[in-house]
Design a protein around this nucleic acid. Structure first.
Lengths: 242, 242
DNA sequence: ACCTGAACACCGTTCAAGT
DNA sequence: ACCTGAACACCGTTCAAGT
């Protein structure tokens, strides 16, 4: 009786970095990132918050570990893709990779904010970028231009882009007629745009702010822009040896 | 003596939303966003944390107010620009606006993260986007395509893009020769790229990850990509009336 | 080696109370 | 109308102590 757990004798598997990180991801997926606290993660396994510190070097290390889990999932999803080779069609190859990453990210909606706020790059992120870089180089980019391209693509490589323009919000709130009139006066184009969407049928390509379509459009704009840069004389100098 | 302040009789101007928001910005600029607490902001004016709640509806309202101050600065900087009109050259007009916004943002390095984490759009942000939209529409974009363009540009409109690719980090840490060798094996392109930058002189356009140049490159890629989309048959249908 | 109790120095927020 | 003291329910983290 001395060794028995007082409450229900719950058998606990010992903690490990792996289990802790996966637990943090599970918790964030289920309850949101704000519920990922040291106390909550520990509780998930029947331990106290302080136990985590033996395995993980504090909260931000925990979040980095969680990022690594997610990016690891992306990596897994991405290695088994069969599309055109980068030599044949680097745009399609990269596009496919990015949209695959997005599929994973959509299952972890907290991840973009955490990834962008995290200062250092985790190993999984480094490896992922190696893959993106490979596509560019095999697609004919010089290292120099590929480097710029990685910066230009930014977080879109990992399948997300923090949206901050949501035109719906502008007219969302209930407002008096005068207020609306004044707003329309000071925001003519915003209102014009919204009006067009309202009484447009199939003419406007998408009903209203389809996040997936907007993301894909943004990727395509970047890919086409990069293709232009690639074939411009300015960048045709130093080719990476393949 | 009954009405005298016990300590030094410090004269305090009364609080107001304006003062509080500007105080939050000042504190964030000076000490970083993590030091912007209700207690610290109140202390800045010689009040207690609870006093803020009379004027401002909690912490997130405080941060929204701080965003509005910064975006207001951007708006001020942007209205007095004299460049080409959008009708003459929308790319230059938009580029100039975006780089001006960036100049303001660089004085408030905490702002990008706060803006992206904030869910709702503040009035100042709405007005700013109206201006961007105006450039696009006057530059010949249909409302439909302009809408997509706003999404594609994203936070770059406001002069920032959260960078997460920092190749320096990959080789930063001191590591054993074997570890480096293994890394180089698994990350051939990343190492190849870095090697080229090391023993390249003036051939590579920029020494190493110049944030400003990378930002401008990204903007130009997007502008060129959007220009392509604009002249493609797919989008030439519905023009916005000017 | 692995886990924990107690404690510390913080947070944001509420609310009844002061002037 | 404007501000505050006391209190509450949380955080992350340290450290000496348990097994």
């Amino acid at each position: 009786m001395s060794k028995a757990n007082p409450i229900r004798n719950k058998p606990r598997k010992p903690l490990s970095r792996e289990r802790i990180f996966r637990g943090a991801v599970e918790l964030a997926d289920r309850a949101g990132i704000e519920d990922v606290t040291m106390r909550n993660v520990a509780e998930l396994f029947g331990f106290e918050a302080m136990s985590l510190y033996y395995h993980v070097d504090g909260k931000s290390a925990l979040l980095e570990g969680a990022i690594d889990v997610v990016v690891g999932e992306i990596q897994d999803a991405v290695v088994s893709l069969d599309g055109p080779t980068p030599e044949e069609d680097w745009k399609s190859a990269l596009r496919q990779r990015i949209l695959t990453a997005r599929g994973v990210i959509l299952r972890h909606p907290w991840a973009p904010a955490v990834i962008e706020q995290s200062t250092s790059m985790t190993p999984a992120v480094v490896f992922y970028y190696e893959g993106v870089l490979e596509i560019l180089v095999r697609g004919g980019f010089s290292y120099d231009l590929a480097h710029h391209a990685l910066h230009a693509l930014g977080s879109r490589c990992l399948g997300f882009s923090q949206e901050l323009f949501s035109p719906a919000g502008a007219a969302d709130d209930e407002a008096s007629a005068e207020m609306m009139a004044e707003m329309a006066d000071r925001l003519p184009h915003l209102f014009g745009m919204m009006a067009e969407f309202s009484h447009d049928g199939p003419d406007s390509t998408i009903g209203w702010c389809d996040a997936q379509s907007e993301f894909e459009f943004g990727v395509d704009v970047l890919l086409e822009g990069l293709d232009l840069a690639k074939s411009s004389t300015r960048w045709s100098g130093a080719r990476a040896k393949t």
